[in-house]
Amino acid sequence: MEVFLQTLANGVMASLTLALIAIGLCLIFGILSIINFAHGEFYMLGGFGVWWFLEAHPIFAGMPALVGYIIAILISMVVVAVIGMIVEKWIFRPVREPHETVMIVSLGVMLFLQAAALVAFGPVDKSVSSPFAGLVQLGTVSFSNERLAAIIGCIIFIAILYVIIDRTRMGKAMRAVAMDSEAAEVQGIKTGMIFSVAMGVSCAIAAAGGALVGPIYYINPYMAVEPIMKAFAAVILGGLGSLPGAVAGAFIIGLTETFVSTYVGAHFALIVVFLIMIGVLIVKPTGLFGHEE
């Protein structure tokens, strides 16, 4: 039972981080019609961001640890968002058609960012000391404060994103572009600006994911390789283009992966995830939340 609850808690955290990546992938697909293989690298850069501000160049050392940590996350998000917008505007946008070309270009961006991080930061795992020390004791199960903070942080970011997309004018415009970009343009929506915003927001929340789990896992240039695959699986499971689907998919994948790792073996986890993905495609090709046409 203890192992079960512990695994469940870890699974929830893994699912939420996955959701932060999957939501961005899904937004980018819905609005820009791009399968962005480089998306995981923004998560990785977010991780390096907090490391940079907290460990390599501790410029916020004078502040209380929590404040410094939050500022580091926010700055990392902004920096990564800007990098993402540059990539979208100058690299993706000029080659938007056909789809295969954009996919290959995004592969190029992925390779470049990975290798650039390797050259800049080296291959050695980096760790960040968390401002949240200690454990929470829930009956017989203990859970570290930093994991709890990561879970709460993820929920906050998902909630903020939900409000932006569902309640603001910008969100409305984004949904209009996702539905039909030409029609949206006719209605006077500046699609180019929407593309930039969507890419910026997606990259920022991916970076938030990397920054939040940074203190828990290690940070290295290849830390996104597995999460991005699982995020893709989540997005497919939920139905390409459906945001609630992406979150649901992230939970299915995240929980399955954690439980299979704990009870069967780490190597099996990704294989099971892959089999689930294929199974869903056979039974319902449009995913759990996707619809016909």
Binding site: I35, H267, L270, M277
Partner: peptide, 28 residues
């Protein structure tokens, strides 16, 4: 068979998954 039915995106993601899964099968 299950993936080429649908437009591009699914197929490329499945092949991405395959490349990682196959490596694990050989390792295991």
């Amino acid at each position: 068979l299950p993936t080429l039915r649908i437009k591009g995106a699914y197929f490329v993601i499945i092949t991405l998954g395959l490349s990682e899964v196959s490596r694990r099968i050989w390792m295991m």
